[in-house]
Write a protein that binds this DNA or RNA. Sequence first.
DNA 1: GCCAACGTTGGC
DNA 2: GCCAACGTTGGC
Length: 153
Amino acid sequence: MNYWLMKSEPTTFSIDHLMACPKQRDHWEGIRNYQVRNMLRDDFQQGDEAFFYHSSCKIPGIVGTMTVVSDPYPDDTAFDPESPYYDPKSDPENPRWYRVDMQLKEKFNTIITLEQLRTLPALGDMPLLRKGNRLSITPITLKQWKIIHKLVP
DNA sequence: GCCAACGTTGGC
DNA sequence: GCCAACGTTGGC
């Protein structure tokens, strides 16, 4: 059982988009970074929980939680020339990119802002808060998970 | 829109 | 294998 923080730009895919999906489930696809790919492919397990984080927007922060509801499997968007995530170098016989299915667990009433997270010394070593971190998925410890959850009104 | 911090690419 | 140039991310 692992805990994760997963970023998405709300203009591309927000928590409301996920909420509107059938069964509030969707593919988490388009990962095109090897470090993130390795974590997703090797460490993600069904039942893992994740924070949904809105990035590159007016108020960046955590907006809810999700559950991992599939094993990692090849990201087919890499094979689709029509897809914005198309990667001609990904061979269907030996897929380069992976995705996973996520289901919404809870949408918070208020956003837990990045600014708010920065005020908590106990979260200091969380990858999200480290300078220069740009990975779209980062691991979270159970301790950090609980601390952040206490901020939810 | 700026810019720091990476990651990727490609010439050598 | 090195490294400069370029591209991307994402907070501010």
